[in-house]
Amino acid sequence: MSINLAAQVNSIMAALILLTSFGLLVQRRMYGLLHLFAWQGLFLSISTAIVGYVSGSHHLYISSILTLALKVILIPYILHFLMKQLHIHKEVEQLVNVPTIMLIGIALVIFSYYLTAPIRELSTLVTRSTLAVALATVMLGLLMMITRRHAVTQIIGFLALENGLFFAATSATYGMPLVVELGVALDILIAAFIFGIFFFQIRTTFDSLDVEQMTKLKEED
């Protein structure tokens, strides 16, 4: 595979990641979300592997495998398990004003592009143009967390945001040092356990995973 081709494939992956991000933003069904998230992880993993191939830095393969294991298999499985346990896999979340959210999402993408434009000029890497996508993914993840009211969807948004980070790390820079990537992966794993515990705690205390209920602690009176 030539470098050029790899770059093209990588760009396609980037586009797919962005697409899944938008999908996550508007997907109402829990399972659908989960699947989309797993897909995003998969694209990320492929992209990482390609970058690893292009740059010749072999630790990216490890990253790629880690991503695959964590984001495509383990965490979706944990989430799936939790949803079953908590009987929420069939729930459908209410979303307000999807078009507006989409418009904001698009605006964010444009904004990300605008921001990363000067950086792109500097970069010599073939994957340079993906930085905008990575930033957009991060922003869209944040947007998703803002617009969703369900604890699980918030977490998925959070994980999508992390995907964006990961994508930035691999595509913009050909990967962070391995120790960092391992550490990050470990942290995400721990985080996954913690939110698992949280889902149970919230469920038992509040009877539902709707985070809108958690507004007791505030300054207004």
């Binding site: 930085l131 991060v138 959070f158 930035a168 507004t215 602690l217």
Partner: peptide, 27 residues
């Protein structure tokens, strides 16, 4: 639990953004 959840989510997001900054720094 509410406090912990907020702590978790807000700091998680925050720190994720810091990672993005770190990536840029590395870049």
């Amino acid at each position: 639990i509410e406090a912990a959840w907020k702590y978790f989510i807000l700091c998680g997001v925050g720190i994720a953004l810091a990672l993005f900054g770190t990536v840029l720094l590395y870049f």
